[in-house]
Design a binder for these strands. Sequence first.
DNA 1: CGGCTCCTTGATCAAGGTCAAGACATGTGG
DNA 2: CCACATGTCTTGACCTTGATCAAGGAGCCG
Lengths: 235, 235
Amino acid sequence: MRNSDNDFIYCENCYIRALTSFKHLNKEQLELLNYEKACNLYKRGDIVYHEGHKGGGVYCVNKGVLKLYKTGIDGKEQILRFAKPGDLIGFRSVLSDEAACTTAKVIEDAILCFIPSKLFVDIASKNSDFSMHLIRLSCKELGESNKYILDLAQKTLRERVAEIIILLYDTFGVDNEDFIQVSLTREEVANIVGTATESVIRQLSDFKKEGSIDLKGRKIKVKNIDKLRIISDIY
Amino acid sequence: MRNSDNDFIYCENCYIRALTSFKHLNKEQLELLNYEKACNLYKRGDIVYHEGHKGGGVYCVNKGVLKLYKTGIDGKEQILRFAKPGDLIGFRSVLSDEAACTTAKVIEDAILCFIPSKLFVDIASKNSDFSMHLIRLSCKELGESNKYILDLAQKTLRERVAEIIILLYDTFGVDNEDFIQVSLTREEVANIVGTATESVIRQLSDFKKEGSIDLKGRKIKVKNIDKLRIISDIY
DNA sequence: CGGCTCCTTGATCAAGGTCAAGACATGTGG
DNA sequence: CCACATGTCTTGACCTTGATCAAGGAGCCG
């Protein structure tokens, strides 16, 4: 984490705010938020918070990309989701008053605004539009987690890898050459799919042979998204 | 579902209410709830709501046990959680305004009180104690789902079966002979663990040979919970 | 009794994990 | 500029886990 007073963001003018639950704040709450929040620059590899620690607050992603993961046997990561501009992270543990159940690590240099628990909970309990938006958020995430449980339990590796490519495609979009705009190591992809690095590599090169994708270093080019959708069995 | 006017439950006197988010209602809201809710008796096997359908409301479990599952390939169920007295089901889809992502099926005869969406959302948006309690609920569930994703992705069958026995133990308790007080078919156990019926059977008989459990029909007697905890690798 | 459903066990097989080795890319210091 | 080290990627060989198939047993009910 780096101090970056010159990067100070005024909530009033923050265009990211429209994407978040904070769009429901009234003027007074917005001023409080602006006053109490702290914006900081984070570099690739920085850890924002650690699994098991009580989070002191919530982070609003203004710029960059993070991965949220749990650490399992032998330190193997299981990536649960990514966070990008407009996403709120750490609110689960703050709202349920439990320790963080994931670790948040920066994978693309980021600007994060920190909002202290107290203020966050305070606003939530006073502003029903805000809190209803949060409920919708956590219920949506819950739906996604439940879906992924089914996938892990029942789908084959091939189906899951196809599904993850689609997820990355939908989450990060593609550049003008159809390369997905995120750079993950093979190991990281494996840690989303829930498999071994070698297995992901094999599956990716199968998809390449079949003409569904192309590979250029860490970048994945999507050539036939429909084929992948059929494989991943989204019905 | 059966009508059961004689089973009518007055929210004011309902001792289950103290266990639920409804304990935060004021007198007026409680009267509304009492007036608008509908209590019904359900028999084992009854389906309360179906995956994919827009839920018309939320159910409060007064008595009985239900399983909540998603249906996967070839109709194979993945059980996500159970609901017992004091639990609220169906609120995820109501609050996120999505279709139900699970099916709710009765496994022990139940009394459920139905609360229409409109009333439920209305109360949530007006009563912040109530809505904060709901947030906490969904965030907790989210934490559990995330934990299970890690388990499915990284743990062996043996570890997962041990873990599920502990889950059932904690959720349903034991009778005076240490038998877990829930009756699940082997297939249902397999559908929690995320594996084949035969694999669960083999693992259970292994645990029996090792002296961790005893089996009597569908009932599981826990003989050495600590050993199971070590196996399931909860640290 | 026959006809269910569920449970159990054995045999077989494939998916995918693990191990090992080499390729490739990148960065560093001499 | 080269030699070397480091980290990631890739491929092949092998082996384990657990899925699948098949058959028989136990319990229950009309």
